[in-house]
Design a protein around this nucleic acid. Structure first.
Lengths: 151, 151
DNA sequence: TTTGAAATCCATGAACA
DNA sequence: TGTTCATGGATTTCAAA
């Protein structure tokens, strides 16, 4: 376990990074390896925890969640544990990090509208003081979708 | 185009969200629909841009990128355009948002070590003033991996 | 670690309700 | 939109190298 990654592993990682739906046969064609061998390697990457998850990204606006925001939280003394266990109860929280600095929690949240944001902030207030920055645009994840299984 | 999502679409979305590698047959079994019908719906969701991308998430520490940080940038006047076109040149930037507030850019970056962080900050300084918060832990995306194609 | 063979399962597209 | 069905591929398992 925890063996080093060779070049073949890195090639598989790069391919799967931007299209989690490549088949083992697809990957094998691209890196000149049999489907069985690819499967063996992908399973090893999963078992060692190097591959964490296969996620689908959606257009949140089209799903009715038109508002995204970065919310920073300065936790009240002694509230960290309570907040950590409560995080899962907030479906709005897409990402949540404990960070260095006075605002010790940073999260990315997705909301339907401003009313929803207000409600969300109200539910956070028992844990700490919030600072909110609305997201105006996404400067990185703008790649067009790649069709699965297509060359 | 742009037709409303029904309950079946939402079920497919929920399933794909946390396992992008489900086959059409898998999805069909879970929601009692034929593989062809599932395929039809997934393709529609892709064509309408509701499904944006299938991504694989990796354990960055195990890939040799042990340092993650939130970096906020207060752009110098007139530097927005230059920064927007330069963003793609920074492989360290995993996410990057233009936000409201005095720090008008928020990004999540991934780095090998502190030396790398210093180098990264140095390369940003021509665009604006940076504020850096090291990520200590991830409070949300800690789900265990789901094996592809397994019930 | 990889290949290749065999059995099983899936994707795809056409015909049709 | 949906099902069924034919067929060409893909997955899976395992023996062998």
């Amino acid at each position: 376990m925890e063996s080093a990654l060779d070049k073949t592993d890195l090639k598989i990682i790069e391919l799967l990074r931007n299209n989690a739906r490549y088949s083992f046969a697809d990957l094998g064609r691209k890196i000149s390896l049999s489907p069985s061998a690819v499967r063996e390697r992908v399973q090893r990457l999963e078992d060692e925890g190097i591959i964490r998850k296969y996620k689908t990204l959606f257009d949140r606006e089209k799903l009715g969640y038109g508002l995204e925001a970065i919310v920073m939280l300065k936790l009240f003394s002694g509230k960290l544990q309570a907040f950590m266990t409560a995080v899962d109860q907030f479906p709005e929280i897409m990402e949540c990090y404990r960070v260095t600095g006075p605002q010790n929690i940073h999260m990315k949240v997705v909301l339907k509208d401003q009313r929803h944001l207000q409600n969300f902030i109200d539910r956070l207030i028992i844990y700490g003081d919030t600072t909110t920055h609305l997201i105006l645009s996404d400067l990185v994840e703008n790649e067009h979708i790649e069709k699965p299984l297509s060359g």
